[in-house]
């Protein structure tokens, strides 16, 4: 019977999963950026057309999508600092594990500061 692979420093642990999350959030942000540049370009064509398209950003479903976008940006940004510290800080590799949880905690904190206000803006009376 094959035994479970011996534990490694990387595989299946924080190092690997933070890398996976960094890629997924990066791709998501990239495709949003492409859309966002094109919708903003409408300000140069027609104010009413711009208002129409930006109006979809205020709908409940896209409003919830914006929460996901902000969450992705928060993780990608803070984990990016962690990557830089691993690369340039003498003790970065030693503390990469605890730094990941600081990234998650800080991202969660900032997200909780943003989410209620954004939800009120999306679902509140206007």
């Amino acid at each position: 019977m094959p035994s479970k692979p011996a534990g490694t420093l990387y595989r299946g642990k924080v190092g690997m999963w933070s890398w996976v999350l960094h890629r997924i959030t990066g791709v998501a942000i990239f495709f949003f950026l492409l859309v966002h540049i094109m919708d903003t370009a409408l300000v140069r064509i027609d104010p009413a057309a711009y208002n129409g398209v930006i109006g979809t950003y205020k709908t409940p479903i896209i409003g919830l999508g914006e929460l996901g976008l902000v969450a992705a940006i928060l993780f990608h940004a803070l984990n990016g600092i962690r990557v830089i510290l691993i690369d340039f800080w003498r003790k970065g590799a030693k503390y990469q594990n605890v730094m990941f949880w600081i990234v998650v905690g800080l991202a969660a904190l900032l997200f909780l500061g943003f989410a209620p206000r954004h939800l009120m803006n999306v679902f509140g009376a206007h």
Binding site: V43, Y50, N51, G63, A77, I81, R117, H118, N121, V122
Partner: peptide, 26 residues
């Protein structure tokens, strides 16, 4: 590092202050 400053500032001004997403128009 520069984008953290620029994008966090962008999100704060456009989505957090005032009416947030509802204030955005031409």
């Amino acid at each position: 590092v520069l984008l953290i400053v620029l994008i966090f500032g962008h999100l704060f001004v456009n989505l957090f202050t005032g009416e947030g997403i509802h204030q955005i128009d031409f």
